[in-house]
Design a protein around this nucleic acid. Structure first.
Lengths: 192, 192, 192, 192
DNA sequence: CTTTAATCGAGACGGTACGTCGTGTCTTAGA
DNA sequence: TCTAAGACACGACGTACCGTCTCGATTAAAG
């Protein structure tokens, strides 16, 4: 466990780090088309060829950039009150969405996903990642017997939080407290 | 209808046509990155510079390609039975979505929309276009007094059909009859 | 004589005039590469295609421009004193050379002359044109018996004035009064 | 001599070589306008962009082509008899001029020299290069005391050999033995 | 004073070249 | 070993100009 394969050359680790940091910056500021070995090399003060040693092509570079960009979410709220916890996770989600990073990443993934299964998988992972706190709360409620045990956590999370993602990602409109409230109400309705 | 159809030089019309046809083919088969003046020129047997005469850069070329790709939808079903008509439009929508063209177009728009307001507007238009039959049915029901007059047609269409789009475009899962049924049920619930 | 084929369409005459005026301006200010149908069209406010109606290609356009540029020289000085007249023509030549137009024209002709006999002929005409006053004075001196009748006027003009042209066009150095004096001395030497 | 020959990448050396060889061919056969990155690339079977890596634009490419074209002259003849040596260098010059390469090079330089000081300098170097054997002989004669020490070698070379260059480059007439003889006579006149 | 024919304006089109940027492969040297 | 440095073939970018080709709109001279 402790022996996780960290025995990587520290130079390698450093290069990967600074390259991806630069790539993330470029992705956020200029979109997919800016994630370029040449630009990363300039930005991170590396040789362009070094980038190619770590990622063989644009696709994998972009994918790695996105993966690097997705910071792990904190633990789901756990106050004992599931309805409150659920509402809390929705607020978190709302913040995360509007922190502006989500839209370009989602779009970049979607654009490639149409013609590259690797990106389709990444897109699914990404969206699930957005919902994972929500799913966690649902699962806890299930285990506590406050939700029927045959409820599918992912399914329910999609049903309740989906409209928020839809608004933000598909019809490009802002999400408000009203959307959070409605989803929270939906949760309480199944909570019984 | 009126003959304001520009009396445009037929050569010009033809060039625009074959160029966009080729561009559509490239977009559908290979995605955004294939929509290239050079490739269109080869595909459509035109001079590359001719492409630039009609569309000054990649962006406008891509936008024009997408506009060319979006065929106008037929009229909304109108049988007198609003619930049936609504269900029908959802089936249409479902078919249209899965006819495979929608996903790459949406994704292409979304990718640019993150950094180009023109594309954001196009994305909104595109999604509204997908829903227009649905909205039309809702509006007819409102005028017939079967829906409260304070219902917002676009809002309602998004609420009811949104989950289908969400499934297809965001979480990349297939849409089934179950989704149509559920949305139709939602419509009947507000109909009374 | 009076009936010279002036029966040309006045529009045509005007177009030719303004086009060549513009072309001359471009040639003098920017060199050969500026003599372009497109640029002339802008400068002279003509349609580019109109230029092509008058001159079929760049070569003939450039040639016409140069011909238009070469203004006919005034008559050779004629004071009765041949030595003085000769020195006067050399001063004129010196001024004409250094009025800056000559070098680029000569060079433009020479560049083409290497691979196009039409331009070679134009180059010869151009240089002879520079010397014609000088030749005229020599010929007058011959007819007055002050020079042997077997002297070749062109040959002598080249021998005497050639060094000035050489300095200016070949080794790119300024011409001074010393050069004029020396040539004039050479003339007086054969005059006796 | 010293091995400062750069230890340059042999690929690079080779590319430069074949590119310039092709460029020289194009320059001699078709003139300035043929010296084109695209045409060189085809002719030398290189990528067009590779040409741009070595020479950033048309001007420097043309300049490099001309430099590559100018082969170094052999040493000046040195028989002890200055008059004979001088006549020999003039014959050499005559041959070099008529070997056909000189005219297009001179013209190409002159055309650009009118508007680009770099080319003007190159033109001066080129002409001086043509005369260097001649100048060398003059300088040797000076050091041997057969010429007054206040004679300017370059000046004298221009005075004596200039007429030959003038004939060939300016009035586009062939040079004959007569021209060589006359110049040689001029040399003997100052030699005394 | 019209009518007819030459000329012009406007601009599309297939081309060639420009000079820039990016890609992915490769090789040589240096830390 | 890995990185730096950079050459290379390839191909797209967007621009400029070339020479050809319609098509109308002017305008000239002739009936």
């Amino acid at each position: 466990m402790t022996l996780d394969d960290q025995r990587e050359n520290p130079r390698t680790t450093r290069v990967r780090q600074v390259a991806l940091d630069a790539a993330v910056g470029l992705l956020l500021s200029g979109g997919t088309d800016e994630v370029t070995a040449a630009k990363i090399a300039v930005e991170a003060d590396l040789a362009r060829t070094t980038i190619y040693r770590h990622w063989p092509d644009r696709s994998s570079l972009l994918l790695a950039t996105i993966d690097h960009l997705i910071e792990p979410h904190g633990p789901a709220p756990d106050s004992g009150d599931f309805a409150a916890d659920f509402e809390r996770t929705l607020s978190n989600l709302c913040n995360r969405l509007t922190m502006k990073k989500v839209r370009p990443i989602f779009a970049a993934l979607a654009d490639r996903a149409s013609h590259d299964e690797t990106f389709a998988a990444a897109q699914r992972r990404f969206v699930l990642g957005l919902l994972d706190q929500t799913i966690a709360v649902i699962d806890r409620a299930k285990m506590a017997g406050e939700l029927p045990s045959d409820v599918d956590g992912v399914e329910l999370a999609n049903r309740l939080a989906g409209p928020m993602l839809y608004r933000w990602l598909v019809i490009l409109e802002p999400i408000g407290q009203a959307d959070v409230d409605e989803a929270a109400a939906g949760f309480r309705a199944v909570l019984s």
